[in-house]
Design a protein around this nucleic acid. Structure first.
Lengths: 257, 257
DNA sequence: ACCTGAACACCGTTCAAGT
DNA sequence: ACCTGAACACCGTTCAAGT
């Protein structure tokens, strides 16, 4: 079987391909394990997840599972990493929307909200990875991987911001605060989504029209930054719907079923 | 001893006082337990905390500890509740600042940041209480108590917002969105502080001037809401320092030691 | 009515033995 | 070189016995 693979791949470097195939196999198994883990969490909640159940539901032994993940929290971190990968793919797609730069920015926020709705458990893992319980115990390698992915999202936002500044949609005297702008967007996105999902019982959330709360928050922030066109000059509710229809039509209609 | 207490209290209702004393004793013990728990978390991290260690470090048995807390997560929730109580006391004090209504609003944000700096572990408990692990397992009574405290903070913000609207500092056409404004403030506060503390390693945070990041975010949001005077018309950095000096001088100087 | 701590069940983690 | 699962240590939780 190993031989078969190496020939079908017509590799010029047999050993390299062999290694790479082995690595591929391990990576696939890891994804398989993460899938099983997520399923357990979906059905039994986070507190219902145990390593024993994971071993019972997959075809590998405890030792093999612990070969992949240093400990339980490391596995949470791995799930968070997969969640971020998915989020980044949504973010990249969202930038394809036809429209102003501010609408593209809306697309980035839309992506995170969509992630939280399509894969709530995955999204919760991303939130949990920012929790001391995970930060204290996950392996160094995994935590670093996560930082790299965060850097990717930061790069996407940075690029959009500097385009907006050079194009004049954001006043150029904001250029010296570009990093602050990026952090403000992240904070608002993180805070809004975390509370909308995990504080749904709180009066300050339950009394809201939760469908528009996020957009309201973004509009307030982007108006405050002075990102043109301001929300008074443009119907961003329309833009929000357009992002759903034009970029994420498949995902949105799947959600509504 | 019971008799002694009841006479020194010169109660008109002996039985009621007895009960109330007993209840007081139980409440005191609970605070004592929470104090010990917090100390363990400070010294050994969240993942280092166990119920066994709590029992070892206090003078009560396992059964008694479990009389207070339904389970470990319930104890986390109790710590979060104490954290919120402390936060609310800071928020109330912060409203005493002399100045505009927007400066009072700054005081509310200042309170949360101060909480995260004076009692980091307590603050982290408040964040953790918004995590599925805790939400899934804490007792109903405790979760409800927390909702009530959240309602108190919401009420403080609501009151300030409606004063600002009637006084004209916020345009009165915002009146219909008062709840949205409240949620926007909460989201920004929650998101900024959570990330400043738990994502310190991320490039988007580490490259910041963390001392001014929160104020930058608030200013952007409040400008976007159109809360007068705008940040272009007023030196809020000065206000921020003033809040520290005038309302929280003791806490701030203790921090700088 | 409340407290106690031994006892239990379960969970996370390891590692000697196997392939 | 990697996989296995029995074994272990520890942790969370309970409850019969005690005051």
């Amino acid at each position: 079987m190993t031989f078969k693979q190496s020939t079908t791949e017509k590799s010029t470097c047999f050993i390299h391909k062999l290694l790479s195939n082995r690595e591929q196999k391990i990576a696939n198994r890891e994804l398989e394990l993460l899938n099983v883990a997520e399923k357990i969490m979906i059905h039994e909640g986070f507190s219902g997840f145990t390593m024993d159940k994971l071993v019972a539901d997959c075809n590998y032994s405890k030792g093999t599972v612990y070969n992949h993940f240093a400990n339980k929290e490391d596995l949470f971190c791995a799930l968070s990493i997969e969640g971020m990968r998915f989020l980044i793919s949504l973010m990249q797609r969202s930038l394809n929307i036809q429209g102003t730069l501010r609408e593209k920015c809306l697309g980035l926020f839309y992506s995170q909200r969509l992630h939280s709705q399509i894969h709530p458990t995955s999204f919760l893992c991303v939130l949990m990875a920012k929790t001391p319980a995970v930060l204290e115990r996950a392996s160094k390698a995994r935590l670093e991987h996560q930082i790299i992915l965060e850097q990717e999202t930061t790069a996407l936002v940075d690029k959009l911001l500097s385009t907006a500044i050079t194009s004049g949609d954001i006043n150029e005297n904001r250029k010296q605060h570009e990093e602050s702008l990026c952090f403000a967007l992240w904070s608002m996105s993180f805070g809004s989504n975390a509370l909308l999902i995990n504080a749904a019982e709180a009066k300050a959330v339950s009394r809201l029209d939760t469908n528009n709360a996020l957009l309201f928050n973004i509009n307030a922030l982007l108006d405050g930054i002075g990102w043109k066109p301001l929300s008074s000059e443009c119907d961003y509710q329309q833009s929000w719907l357009r992002i759903g229809n034009e970029v994420f039509s498949k995902e949105v209609s799947a959600l509504q079923e």
